[in-house]
Simulated scan of single mutants.
Amino acid sequence: MKFCSGYMPPEYAVDGIFSMKSDVFSFGALVLEIVSGKRNRGFCHTDHKHNLLGHAWRLWNEERALELIDNLLDYSSASSEILRCIHVGLLCVQQGPEDRPNMSSVVVMLSSEGSLPQPKQPGFFTERNLPESESSSSKHLSSSTNEVTISMLQPR
């Protein structure tokens, strides 16, 4: 499947099914975006064509999750907390809604130090074929100009 809307869970995007875990997927995608400093939508890594969720999953499985962290973050003293955020983010974006935690569990996971279950493959774990202009690795910024006319009515 080549469709990814950024925060939309697979069950809603594909089948139009909304569940109590749909927001959990969106939250997980947002957590991974915050940690990485990159947007899920339009993300494309130079070494592979995975979206941000796929990239995070790949790094997690290769035990290189710290590479996901935005270079602008000073995480030297908080790397275990950021790794926990990545772990929880991956648990939230799992393919099946039944595999995702509920939001109250997410709060507990983020605020405690207990062990966490291993995440399963995320939804929309796809290789993408984005045009160069849509890729987050692209340096080219495109824009358009809209011409607008505004008429100001003045009373006499």
Results as ranks from 00 to 15, higher is better:
residue 55 H to C: 11
residue 57 W to A: 07
residue 57 W to D: 02
residue 57 W to Y: 11
residue 58 R to Y: 13
residue 58 R to L: 15
residue 60 W to K: 03
residue 60 W to L: 04
residue 61 N to V: 02
residue 64 R to T: 06
residue 65 A to T: 05
residue 65 A to V: 08
residue 65 A to N: 00
residue 67 E to I: 07
residue 69 I to G: 06
residue 70 D to R: 01
residue 70 D to E: 05
residue 71 N to M: 05
residue 71 N to C: 12
residue 71 N to A: 10
residue 73 L to H: 11
residue 76 S to K: 15
residue 76 S to E: 15
residue 77 S to G: 11
residue 77 S to T: 14
residue 77 S to Q: 15
residue 79 S to K: 14
residue 79 S to H: 10
residue 81 E to Q: 15
residue 81 E to T: 12
residue 82 I to P: 00
residue 83 L to G: 06
residue 84 R to T: 10
residue 86 I to V: 14
residue 87 H to Y: 05
residue 88 V to C: 02
residue 88 V to P: 11
residue 89 G to L: 12
residue 91 L to S: 02
residue 92 C to P: 02
residue 92 C to K: 02
residue 93 V to I: 04
residue 93 V to W: 09
residue 96 G to Q: 11
residue 96 G to L: 14
residue 97 P to Y: 14
residue 98 E to V: 12
residue 99 D to N: 15
residue 99 D to S: 15
residue 100 R to K: 11
residue 100 R to D: 09
residue 103 M to H: 08
residue 104 S to T: 15
residue 105 S to N: 04
residue 106 V to C: 10
residue 111 S to P: 11
residue 112 S to C: 09
residue 113 E to I: 06
residue 113 E to Q: 12
residue 114 G to Y: 04
residue 114 G to D: 09
residue 114 G to P: 07
residue 115 S to N: 06
residue 115 S to C: 05
residue 115 S to A: 05
residue 116 L to N: 04
residue 118 Q to S: 07
residue 118 Q to T: 02
